[in-house]
């Protein structure tokens, strides 16, 4: 459904070099710090920026050559950009009707009501959470096959974040062939939603795994320095040494749990994985 091959783009002090493939019906997460290249990657997928080199194929076409019809199959929520803030939801409904023939007005109104969004208040008077929900609902308003959501939960409290994630889940349940690409710097948002996760740092993909494998196979191994010397490091992918112990990231926690019954093996969260891959000793 989406394929990026050696996509390159350079800005002052920043280089992007990305290869990824997203099949149909997949929920894919991009995780990384602010400025890691998530938004640039998504903008390239949308044809908003022109890659310096490399191939991009989205829905079988080059995004820069998208026709209006092609774009109707994609629903987008950008992190910093939406309709002008002087509009009300009532205005936006009329505008969306002008853009999409299959704009689902009743459904959109119902969902806005469910989220308690006011119809006749200007967006500039909305709270951050309300704006975030509206953005996601706009992306979902025309039964798009592919949703692209850039940081849909940024700046939200835990309750609002869950509401947004539940909106996405409900959209996915309506049709199993729908795909989502979602970026976030909050890993727990992605853990319970995405099928696979790309970790992006400094314009590069540092890890790509199914969420299932990340949570099921990756683990944290904690050993003393002496134990570390004798440890079989076949499945160790990152280590951090401190004064009293060595913390290792493993891609096969079962192996260490079974072969070294005395050492501590814990489940790893995506945050731990990022910290150990990025911040670990080389």
């Amino acid at each position: 459904m989406v394929r990026l091959t050696d996509l390159r783009k350079e800005y002052k002090g920043f280089k992007l070099d990305i290869t990824m493939e997203i099949p149909e019906g997949r929920v894919t997460g991009l995780i990384g710090r602010n400025g890691a290249g998530k938004t640039t990657t998504l903008k390239a997928i949308l044809g908003l920026i022109r890659p310096a080199s490399g191939e991009i194929e989205v829905l079988g076409k080059k995004p820069m050559e998208f026709s209006a019809e092609d774009k109707k199959q994609i629903g987008v929520a950008l992190s910093s950009s939406c309709f002008s803030k002087v509009f009300t939801i009532s205005d936006i409904i009329q505008i969306l009707k002008g853009f999409y023939d299959d704009f689902n007005e009743d459904d959109f109104r119902k969902k806005c009501k469910d989220q308690e969004l006011p119809f006749d208040k200007q967006i500039k008077d909305f709270s951050t959470g309300m704006v975030a929900k509206l953005r996601v609902l706009i992306a979902m308003s025309h039964s798009a096959k592919l949703l692209i959501l850039d940081e849909p939960t940024a700046g939200l409290d835990v309750i609002a974040r869950n509401d947004v994630l539940d909106l996405i889940r409900a959209y996915l349940e309506e049709d199993p062939n729908r795909s989502v690409i979602i970026s976030s710097h909050i890993s727990t948002d992605l853990e319970g939603l995405c099928d696979d996760i790309y970790m992006i740092n400094d314009g590069r993909i540092i890890l790509h795994e199914d969420t299932d494998a990340l949570l099921g196979k990756y683990g944290i191994v904690k050993v003393s320095k002496e134990e570390y010397e004798t440890l079989d490091k076949k499945y160790i992918v990152g280590t951090r040494k401190d004064n009293f112990s060595v913390t290792c990231l493993t891609s096969e926690k079962q192996f260490y749990a079974e072969n070294y019954p005395k050492i501590v093996v814990e489940n790893a969260h995506i945050d731990d994985i990022i910290v150990l891959i990025l911040g670990g000793d080389k």
């Binding site: 889940r169 996915l172 349940e173 199993p176 939603l193 099928d195 696979d196 199914d210 969420t211 299932d212």
Partner: peptide, 18 residues
């Protein structure tokens, strides 16, 4: 359905499918 159960349990659809 895979997505329904994934949504309810807040786990990935691929996990349910597996």
């Amino acid at each position: 359905s895979v997505r329904n159960l994934a949504g309810e349990l807040k786990i990935s659809a691929l996990t349910v499918k597996k």
